[in-house]
Amino acid sequence: MSSNVMVLVEAEAGGVTDATVELIGKARELATAWGGAVEAVVLGPGEVGTGLGGADTVVRVEHPGLATYLPEAYENTLAELLVTRSPRLLMLANSTVGLDLGAALAVAWDAELVAYVVGLQTEGTTAVATAQILGGKILAEVGMAAERGVVTVVPGSFPAALGRVAGEPELVTVDAPGSLGSLRMRLERLVTPEGGDVDITAAPMLVSVGRGVGSADNIELAQEMADYLGATVSSSRPVVDAGWMPKSRQVGKSGLTVTPRAYLAFGISGAPEHLEGMRDSELIIACNTDENAPIFDVAHYGTTTDLFELLPALTGRLGG
């Protein structure tokens, strides 16, 4: 066993994801305290993106079967790396990848897992994790007793700046496990977001609606207000799942991350998955009838006025 912290690198078109950079920053802190190293695992062939300067080692497995994400291939590869390199802690983002791999690797590696982590500290040779559960209503502090553990971290929990440091990590290339030849799943097709609709990530102002609007028809109210405001309408996930808004308007973990100058949330509870996608907006104003809704913890201004009253009132104020 080592005192190293291993981080799985996720990349997107523009390079390493922000979530990965955050993890590396935090890993740096932990590894320093433990006197270990930060190992960034990059799977698949091709260029290693920039942004891994905070890592001591970049561990690469260049098998072509890892070129695009495939849950089983990644899981098998990582499982082997965990055994061969035995870090003290494996850090994953709580993304689709984290949801696929975290708990499975914990079983395979026989380690403890803490999910939905928003805080991490060292305590001697172990870590203390703070996780956010029950829709953000409760924080749980877990002492990670074992000497090996896995955490899946809610993106946005740690400052990315810590990870965004210059450095020349050592490059280690490792062979892929033989099991990649006999996988029980295969990728058929990658789907890119449907174009054509407006790009909510480019909108300076967003009027975002959540399940509180109740039905597709009520979205009209928000649209009307947004028209007067010159804003774009976006939404939380359930609104998209119900078919009331196109997928291209979804803000959050499985949608888009937005940082508009103003984000006006109506009837959105503020689940961690949603907050992930909008917490860095310049100005957040939330309308939710539940005074305890977690959205108020990230909003700058809030009101418990009923959205069905507030939207028309706003439209009125804006000249409607």
């Binding site: 295969r186 058929e188 499985s254 888009l256």
Partner: peptide, 13 residues
């Protein structure tokens, strides 16, 4: 399977 940013993958399992 869905990913951030509206990307998705079709897998046969």
């Amino acid at each position: 399977q869905e990913f951030a940013g509206g990307r998705a993958a079709e897998l046969v399992v």
